[in-house]
Design a protein around this nucleic acid. Sequence first.
DNA 1: ATCTGGTTTTGACATCGATCAAATCTGCAT
DNA 2: ATGCAGATTTGATCGATGTCAAAACCAGAT
Lengths: 228, 228
Amino acid sequence: MMNSNFKLSNRDRAVLMKTPFLTSLSGNSLVRMMSNMSVVSLTNRKSIFREGENADAFYCVLSGYVRLYQLNRDGREADIRICSPGDTFAECLLYGGTKYRYHAQTAEATTLARFDMQAVRDLAEQERDIAKAVITSLSKHLMTTMDCVANDRLHTAPQRVANYILTRCPVDGGPASIRLPFQKNLLAGMLGLAPEALSRAFSTLRRTGVTVRGRVIQVGDVQALREI
Amino acid sequence: MMNSNFKLSNRDRAVLMKTPFLTSLSGNSLVRMMSNMSVVSLTNRKSIFREGENADAFYCVLSGYVRLYQLNRDGREADIRICSPGDTFAECLLYGGTKYRYHAQTAEATTLARFDMQAVRDLAEQERDIAKAVITSLSKHLMTTMDCVANDRLHTAPQRVANYILTRCPVDGGPASIRLPFQKNLLAGMLGLAPEALSRAFSTLRRTGVTVRGRVIQVGDVQALREI
DNA sequence: ATCTGGTTTTGACATCGATCAAATCTGCAT
DNA sequence: ATGCAGATTTGATCGATGTCAAAACCAGAT
């Protein structure tokens, strides 16, 4: 089930080095960060942490996907964020509190880099470039989260889906084809929709020249999608 | 209309010193931060900046309120965040980009502390405690924004209103009375609701012993409100 | 006390998206 | 190829919330 070690595959290492957290670090800081890191591999649907637990680590997704979610009183789950390779989560607790604020669970077989919270906290106080890396990471994360709020409040389901497709389409206006990197289930959670609503949004977009077959999405006219 | 100076009222100064941004700073760092700050006073409904403009300053609300919002294609506005005294906004652009991502406008007569973006960027690189203050501020801000997403996706209008009331009620379970610090209009935006929906949420809560008269909200039984 | 402009509430309605159940599809294992 | 389990789509329905219009309310100015 759970497999913890210190070996990184080449691909995982490449992902790790491109996170805002590590990408700008110099030799020495990098070594110190890495010495407080361990690698965790989990199969699908495993809990990483639960709301209310003591926050003694934050994580970076190396491969696979992680769902951050909360429960309401009735036990209904709502995804707050879907983390893809390169994303960091729970790093806001470095200075923001001592307990996890939501549940985290794998949404596929997943490999994580695990950073000891207290160790990084100390490091950030000592090394300027680590502090800067923390700031960069938090800034980006905050911006995408604010975008998420705006997206939820401003756009309908088909618009959100169109937006998502557009973010992974070539910039020019012609036809394009993309492949979802995960199940539609996850995409629904990412966009704050029930899976059925996502499905219906796709079928609405058919009128705009979007074809969906399995994970492959074909867009007849990228420009037309922008007008939705 | 717009009135910029370097004088701080005692109350504004007290608010400023309690922001995560400044509260932990030592004498020297504090002086340097303050030397890159100016005070701006604006009347109601004045634009502070607009989406897409060059981000050359971030702000802290000293008194009054600020609405951050975006427009959709049809021109409908959606509030992303309502900033109260003590809140900082646009500070995520310190390291996250060069253009404002949303509109900011006063929602009352408002006094702001304006910080020069580039100057603080430089300062944060030099002074450890300033970097730390930035991190603390971003962390808190990120957490409340994630809470906002969760709240939007998980709770109905009456539940959100109940939550809001509870955050400003004494902790014990008895009766309580609070006074809204602003128009219901703003509260609606804060909770991601149309004003009419807020009004209806209040009337739903009447069944749970909540009485609203103008800005005064009386809660019969705080504990009962938690069960909504 | 009264007027007045802006805010809030209420009503009627349309729309969106959630939910539940059933049918279909897909990919994987045999 | 075949079968299965899980994922996705579709259908039917319901509830929640946005929208528009009108009435009621409120607060500050006269």
